[in-house]
């Protein structure tokens, strides 16, 4: 449904909505080493996408959804 923040890992599930973007940015700024887990993520709203593109956090797990994975390849450093 959304993003679940653990100690140094943000877990994205299913459809991550636009409202999440602000928190995601804050969390990534606070946790510069924070990783993201996209395994069960199906889609992230564009606002989240641009946060991720601006910060390029480490991706702990890529989406199982192949199409999303291709789109997010831009996050590889």
């Amino acid at each position: 449904m959304a993003i679940e923040y653990k100690k140094s890992l943000a877990v994205f599930t299913e459809f991550v909505g636009v409202e999440e973007a602000e928190n995601l940015l804050q969390w990534l700024l606070k946790n510069p080493k924070g990783k993201i887990n996209l395994a069960t993520c199906e889609h992230i709203h564009a606002a989240n996408l641009q946060v991720l593109m601006a910060i390029k956090p480490l991706v702990a797990a890529w989406p199982a959804d192949e199409d999303l994975q291709r789109w997010l390849a831009v996050l590889e450093k």
Partner: peptide, 15 residues
């Protein structure tokens, strides 16, 4: 490039 991440306006599309 976004100059300062802290000031990034996440709700203004730059995409």
């Amino acid at each position: 490039d976004i100059p300062s991440l802290a000031e990034m306006d996440v709700y203004s599309s730059q995409l």
